[in-house]
Each structure stands twice: as C-alpha cells, then as structure tokens.
Write a protein that binds this DNA or RNA. Structure first.
Length: 202
DNA sequence: TATAAGATTTACT
DNA sequence: GTAAATCTTATAT
C-alpha cells in the first residue's frame, strides 16, 4: 500500500519551471468542488518560462489584470479563459514576483469518474480529460478559482508514489503557440504514457 | 470605444 | 482533414 502525500509549498517554490513540469507527471490533481472530490493523474504538462518566453502571457514582464496571478508565489492556481470558452489550469511556480507557470494539458481519470462524466456530458472515459479545456470541465475548475492556494483544501496535488520511468515520458515542443516564434520550438512539453495503462487498453 | 487574436474543442465533410 | 463556435483580454485608435 503506497503512501499518499500532499504536495507542499517547497515543491512549487523551486526556480526550474521546466524541471517542475517534468516532475508533475504522475502526480495526482485533486479538486473538492462543492464537497465533491475528483482526482486525475497528470499525464501532460507544458512549462511557461516567464518573462523570457514569448509564448507566455507574462513575456517581457507584461503585467495585466489577467497575468497578475502568475506573479504570485509558487503553489497558486492560475486559471484563465481561452477562446472565450475554455478554462485552462496552470500551476504557478517559483517565488512571488517571478511569473513562471506549468499548464496541465491532460489527466488520466482516477477518482470521481461518474462526476466527470456528468460534468462533461459524455460516457467516453478516454476523452474525459484529454485536453487542457476538457480536463478543467471534468474537474469542475473555472476561472472563479483563479488565484486559489494549491496547499489549501479546494484544489491540490498529491504524490501517490507514481514514478514515471524515462521510457514512459515523451518530450516535445508546445502546442498552439505558433505565434511565439523560436520559443515555440523549445522542448517544454512533457507527456506521460504509463506502460501498464497502455497494456490495459490492449 | 473598437478591433484583433487566442496556451481549444467539437462537429462536419 | 477542415472549419465553425464563441467571448475575454490586450492593444490600438
């Protein structure tokens, strides 16, 4: 029986956002929305490297009402609306004043799957959390949770002792950031393909 | 005030 | 594979 440990502040406060993005794979994202718990294993992340990253909202130190959350201390949720429809969930990292963040792009549904199905209005488990906009819907995350403390009791991360092996991780460039020029080519995207999960799907 | 673009999803051809 | 949906945010008048 593996021990479940809540991810604590020190994990988020470190200064290498790309390293943190890699380490988030296999961690379990938990939400308690209106008292209902849902959990998902993080299977895809992207790092956004603050002021020097053209793909980041905070590029060049840009500071607006929307990006303000990214300047908070590590362990804060940065949630914003994309394309007017989709709520995207990010984990803020580093110290207060440094706008680093990791976008969570997909999850493997883990607990509260019936709730996810209702929220997503589908029974297709493979698609419940298959993109950054759909996973927030499945988890009940909306922009009203922007700025939520990830060491609190609404949204948090757990370490279930899942340690992806090198063979289970793919690295590539980020998605949907063509406007970022050369920065769009950076290897900041991490994908976790669990071997036993794939076998289970035959 | 007005306009353009977006860290996407879904349905349709 | 292509395109529409859809609306907030940021930037330019």
């Amino acid at each position: 029986m593996k021990k479940i440990i809540k991810v604590e502040r020190n994990f988020y406060l470190r200064n290498d956002v790309v390293q943190i993005a890699r380490e988030l794979l296999g961690k379990v994202l938990v939400t308690r929305i209106h008292g209902i718990i849902t959990k998902g294993i993080i299977s895809e992340t992207e790092a956004y490297n603050g002021v020097v990253d053209r793909a980041s909202h905070a590029y060049g130190g840009r500071r607006t009402k929307r990006t303000e959350t990214m300047y908070k201390q590590g362990g804060t949720a940065y949630i914003y609306l994309c394309y007017g429809i989709h709520h995207l969930f990010n984990v803020v990292t580093n110290r207060e004043g440094i706008p680093h963040a990791v976008l969570v792009r997909s999850l493997i549904p883990f607990e509260g799957i019936d709730t996810m199905k209702k929220r997503r209005k589908t029974n297709d488990v493979a698609r419940l959390c298959s993109g950054p906009g759909s996973l927030t819907q499945a988890m009940g995350i909306t922009t009203s949770y922007d700025g939520t403390d990830l060491t609190g009791n609404l949204i948090w991360l757990e370490d279930h002792g899942i340690k992806p092996s090198v063979a289970e991780i793919s690295i590539s460039s980020r998605i949907g950031v063509d406007y970022a020029g050369e920065d769009a080519l950076l290897p900041y995207r991490f994908i976790y393909h669990p071997q036993d999960f794939l076998r289970g799907k035959k």
